[in-house]
Design a protein around this nucleic acid. Sequence first.
DNA 1: CGGCCAACCTGTGCGC
DNA 2: TGCGCACAGGTTGGCC
Length: 278
Amino acid sequence: MPELPEVETVCRGLAPFLEGHRFVRVEQRRKNLRFPFPKGFVKRLQGRQVERIHRRAKYILTYLDDSTVLIIHLGMSGRMTITAPGNTAPEPGKHDHVVFETEAGAVIMYNDVRRFGLMTLEQEDKLDQHPLLKDIGPEPLGNQFSDSYLSAVLKGRKTSIKAALLDQKVVAGVGNIYACEALYRAGISPRRTADSVAGKRAERLVPAVRNVLEEAIAKGGSTLRDYVQTDGELGYFQHEFAVYGRENEPCPDCDCGKSVQRIVQSGRSTFYCAKRQR
DNA sequence: CGGCCAACCTGTGCGC
DNA sequence: TGCGCACAGGTTGGCC
């Protein structure tokens, strides 16, 4: 699930337990996720203090006091679980792959059934050049993501606009759900060619992407308090989607009885309303 | 380079 | 109840 809003929510949930706190125990419970853990992973983390947590695209960047950065990606099924200081942490289960304990007594577990996630370490001054990060496009909530940028970057691209939105080089952090939802809001067909999204369409798509992500973050934020108190699990949230997962249902703004269709584009499900989206 | 597809891995839900 | 298949929110690497 984790797209930009979920990763942002996870970062915000982790921050109070990690920023300014020191890892006193790190347990790596298997040798790899998507990639092998780097050499000396546990040793390099133990005793380090976290300075700040930051999100870039779908990556969680944890800046440490020795100028290294712990890079975390949640993949498809990665979650973080927090046990606040003073409470008893559960025993790690089959899919709890990494356990962090802070000096204050918080226990954070990384859980990932499918293991498409990753953790690695990089020197802070080399972070921009890291292979995983160097080609990522602008943050959709930042100023660089504008209709002129979008028109320019999509120029000449014959793939679908849906596939282009999923390309992290075009824009950072948009995944399958929010690509569908943003296109719905913008009234743009996911089948449309990417380079046909310029001018007025780009002017509609940019705020559509921004707004849907901002709303999802706001919702994550509003459920976060309850989330941490109940079971401490961070990562999966119930959102109301207009089209995603709603095949054969009427879309919210449809007055014509037509319903949401599911198609497959480059191997991923796309949901859209053929009447509203052209 | 652009674009498509398989692969990575586990779990779940559905039809038969 | 069991089996096989489709599918799941991400990303990469290989191929044409």
